[in-house]
Structures are given as structure tokens and as C-alpha cells.
Design a protein around this nucleic acid. Structure first.
Lengths: 202, 202
DNA sequence: TTCTACCTACCTACCGGTAGGTCTGTTAGC
DNA sequence: GCTAACAGACCTACCGGTAGGTAGGTAGAA
């Protein structure tokens, strides 16, 4: 049994097919952008005609919504687990960066869509996703303020510092190549080194 | 007399009007994305009808091209000057970050287009822009390898480290608000602190 | 029979871009 | 100084094409 939708915005149907469609949409959106992609392209990727898509999906926007929701849920879960398993703020920060970087590496297309196609992410319908996105960022901010409280980190506004740290991992979607010379873990360790040393007290 | 174009890819006409159009396109592309934006919207922003636009611009793509070219030229120039005016690698790195961050702050729309709309940036026509973009990044990489050579910085692959550093500034386009509580300079100084400490030897 | 999953055919809206005309200010010839 | 030609800048009307989405039908499984 595949996972049920948290918000069933879409006509229920064979969940496996729907997952295939979302996956195909992820690839097509990533390559052509949300506006540049056509439903016909997505349909072709799944091996059906455009109108058949509408048997499983109500609107084009639903696909974008599904991609965003799925991604932020998975990333939040993985990060939460990594944080809980780490001993102190420094280890938590390193673990979060590692999760983020490997996540970007493993889900390049989805991350590309998530970070690049948020123009359409507006209005009531999206508040849920935006809220989760903020909650994710708050997890990182909390590590930073805990670290500042215990004296592990220098006293820098967590809202700004979190931007710097997440930027490193997020930006990976523009350049990181999983088949390149370095693994996501190796890159993450370098970034963690910069971040941890950069935030440590002199 | 206003400045002549470095590459006259577009029908010459009153240069001031053309500049207005590029500026309008920057706003509209930034808000709706390249594919989501229409020539009619851009025309309306300048106060004319769509067909009149084509008196000044040959194709929609020319506008994107103009935005990219203009931005990378300005950013490169400003960064070059800042680097040349700084004494040592550490100061150069801080200065570059400051230039990048204030640039993002001053040209949010253009930077948004530059960083977000590069799907269409392919083919012969764009090689020039891509080359300049790489050259910009190489400037930063050089600071890092110089710093590693003089012993100011720890020995981290400059290609990776430059990604981390540029990420901080670039990512600013997604969140930084010039009317917010902190100035671009203040944020840049924080980032520089993280980067410099993060790269310094233990 | 009824439901699911798919199809062909089609609708409306809008896109980038063109054709071709008009208005206006500048210049040339007398 | 007057007029005729010209060119730049803009317009309305329109084209071919494609987009998202719908109508309505069919084949097969239960």
C-alpha cells in the first residue's frame, strides 16, 4: 500500500499510477519549468494521452502542490530524526546539513521544482506548505539558538545564520552532480566544517 | 547620449525607451517567470501595445538575454574593483561578499531573473553570458586559492568553497528585504564573518 | 450493469509574432 | 517660409499554433 495523501486534493484512483504521474511531473517541471511544461508532455512520460491524465489529476497545479508537499514532508522527517539522534548543537547542525545535502543529491528534480517553482505557491491552498517550509527552517534556527545558549556558537541572529547555512545546501541544486568527483556526504562535511568553524567562538 | 550596447542584438532605436523596456521586462519576468510573462504585460508596463514593443525588440528572448548580459557585466565590474582595492585574500573575500550581497539587494528583480530563468539560457547565443558567469566564479575561486597559498585559509577545494560562499549571497534573492531590519551591508558582514572564520586555520 | 481507465475530438483562451496602416516631427528643395 | 518626402514610433487587426481543460464514448474487469 502506498502512502495516502495528507490532503486528498486530487481524484482518488490507483495510487501507484498517481505516484508515477507525480514523478513524471517532477521530471518535466524540473526540465522545462512549471509554466513551460505541458500536461501533454507529462502524460507522454507516463505513457498516456493528456485527457487521461485528468482521470487522476484535477488540475496542473495539483501536481505542483503534490511535489511541494511530498518534498517538505520527507525533508522535515529526515531532518527531525537526524537532529534527535545527535548529541549536541554542533553535531545537530552537521547532521542537518548532511541530510539536506544528500536530500538535494537524491532528489535533484524535486528540489529544483521546490526551490524554483514557488511563484504559483500563493493563496489559501498553499498556506499549509508554506507553514511546513517555515517550520523546517525553524528547526535549524533552534539548533543555532541552543548552540548560542550553551556557548558552542557565537551569538549571531539565528534567522540570518540559518539562511547562510541552508543556502549552502539548497544552492547545491544548481551545481551538484551526484556522478561527479565528490559525494554529497563529502560536500556536506566540507560545508559543515565551514559552518561549524564559522559559528564557533574565537 | 546614453551608453551604446556592448552587443547590439536588437534593433537600434531610442536607447532610453529600450532601457525602459528591459527594466519593465525585468520586473515582469521576476514576478511571473520568463514563460509565465507575456509580451503584452511588458508592453503595458511601458505604456504601449504589444506590437509596438517589436519596434524596439526583435524577440522575447532578446529581453532575457539583455537582462542576463547587463547583470553579469555590472556584477563582474563591481567585484573586480572591490577585489583590486582590497589588501589580502581575507579582505578580498569579505569585499566580494559585500558587493554580491548589496548587488542582490539593489537589483532584486534582475537577480531573480538571472538566477531563476536560466532554462532558456542555452545554445550558441548564450555562450558569451555563460562564459562571463564562469569567469565571475573563477574570480572568487582565485581569492580562495591565493588565501590557501599564503596560509590565510585552510586547504579546501576552491571549487567547493566558492559554491558555499556564493550560495550565501545568491540565496539572498529568496529572502532578503531591503526594507527589513538589517541592511545588505550588515548581512554581508555576518556572512563574511562566517566565511572567513569558517575558512581560517584552526 | 457498473466502474475504472483510457481514448478521440474538441473548446476556449491566449501566446509570440506579423501585416500594414497612421500620426508626428524633421529635413530637403524650392 | 512652405510644402513634400521620409522615417521613427506607435496603432488595430490578425495569423498560426498551442495551452489547459472538457465532452463523450469504448474496452475490459468485477
Amino acid at each position: 500500500m502506498t502512502s495516502a495523501n495528507t490532503t486528498p486534493t486530487v481524484t482518488e484512483s490507483a495510487p501507484a499510477v498517481r505516484a508515477d504521474i507525480v514523478e513524471a511531473a517532477t521530471r518535466v517541471f524540473s526540465e522545462h519549468g512549471y509554466d513551460g511544461a505541458s500536461m501533454a508532455q507529462i502524460a507522454a512520460e507516463v505513457g498516456m494521452r493528456k485527457p487521461s491524465l485528468y482521470h487522476h489529476v484535477r488540475k496542473k497545479e495539483d501536481l505542483l502542490f503534490a511535489i511541494h508537499g511530498q518534498l517538505i514532508d520527507e525533508l522535515t522527517l529526515e531532518t527531525r530524526q537526524a537532529i534527535d539522534a545527535a548529541a549536541d548543537p554542533a553535531a545537530q547542525l552537521a547532521a542537518s546539513l548532511r541530510v539536506a545535502m544528500t536530500f538535494v543529491s537524491r532528489n535533484r528534480d524535486a528540489v529544483t521544482v521546490f526551490l524554483q517553482e514557488n511563484r504559483a505557491v500563493r493563496g489559501e491552498r498553499w498556506d499549509e506548505v508554506v507553514g511546513k517550509r517555515d517550520a523546517y527552517e525553524r528547526m535549524v534556527q533552534e539548533i543555532l539558538s541552543n548552540g548560542a545558549a550553551t556557548g558552542a556558537f557565537v551569538n549571531i541572529p539565528p534567522k540570518i545564520a540559518s539562511k547562510a547555512i541552508l543556502a549552502m545546501a539548497n544552492w547545491g541544486y544548481t551545481w551538484f552532480n551526484p556522478d561527479g568527483p565528490m559525494s554529497a556526504d563529502e560536500v556536506a562535511d566540507i560545508f559543515a566544517r565551514i559552518a561549524l568553524t564559522g559559528l564557533s567562538k574565537p
